[in-house]
Write a protein that binds this DNA or RNA. Sequence first.
DNA 1: TACGTGTATTATGTTAACTAATACACTCAG
DNA 2: CTGAGTGTATTAGTTAACATAATACACGTA
Lengths: 132, 132
Amino acid sequence: MLPFPIELTAGAPIYEQIVEAVRRAVASGRLKEGDRFPSVRAISAELRVNPNTVQKAVTELTSLGLLEVHPGQGCYIATRSVSTVRQQREALAPLLERLVIEAAHQAVDEATLLELLRAKCRELKINLDSNS
Amino acid sequence: MLPFPIELTAGAPIYEQIVEAVRRAVASGRLKEGDRFPSVRAISAELRVNPNTVQKAVTELTSLGLLEVHPGQGCYIATRSVSTVRQQREALAPLLERLVIEAAHQAVDEATLLELLRAKCRELKINLDSNS
DNA sequence: TACGTGTATTATGTTAACTAATACACTCAG
DNA sequence: CTGAGTGTATTAGTTAACATAATACACGTA
């Protein structure tokens, strides 16, 4: 069994779904720094997907700084990299924009939207205070 | 000149960028109900893009309920369709999740995230109170 | 009648995504 | 040292999405 929940669906690339699942698991605390990450072949077998596809996800996760590769040994969840306030804003801006646009079309008022955001924060059990 | 701001970039399908631009314009009030929408051929010429690609965007915008087609005459911005609370939540859930996950990775605390959301709401000049 | 609408059709080229089958350098337990 | 398990690279082939191109048609209207 994989150490992170994932269920492949159609519509999005498989390697992207893997990346997103790992990001979700790390953000929620399901996966922690130093944790052993399953081998490419193990994930491949579990998801019944080509090893090359999993490899593509691992490569992206590594470049995202979420995974550390120990040559000949395996992968581990990396320590979080520090980012500047500018980088934070640039990463969040497009997501915020899409959310606000969708809320407008759904006629969801700002107060409700803020409450939904608070609820989602709790849902993912994010410990935001433990970081800077 | 097109009645909505748009700048084509690489990385995302052209027809999707058009859809997103129109959604943004409608959400921000730049385009309003009953407004005339440029013809497929006009947009095609303005963006120097194939008419079929624009047509694909129009088809999607129509199915999304943002555009009304008056046969032989043209397209107009449609009146907003009412959606249930359930539909609202289902539309916002994936966007909220992606936002919260990204915020966690960027080590942005909840209070800051909420403030960024308020700022983005004002930035898009959304009139959330005029709708139910 | 002409023109401008949206729409449909057929064809072609490009690119991304996925699978498949190998192969190689590395680390570590035996 | 040997062999198994790591990540990684390579080559090949298939499929689907995207975009372009060139027409064609039914519709409303000046």
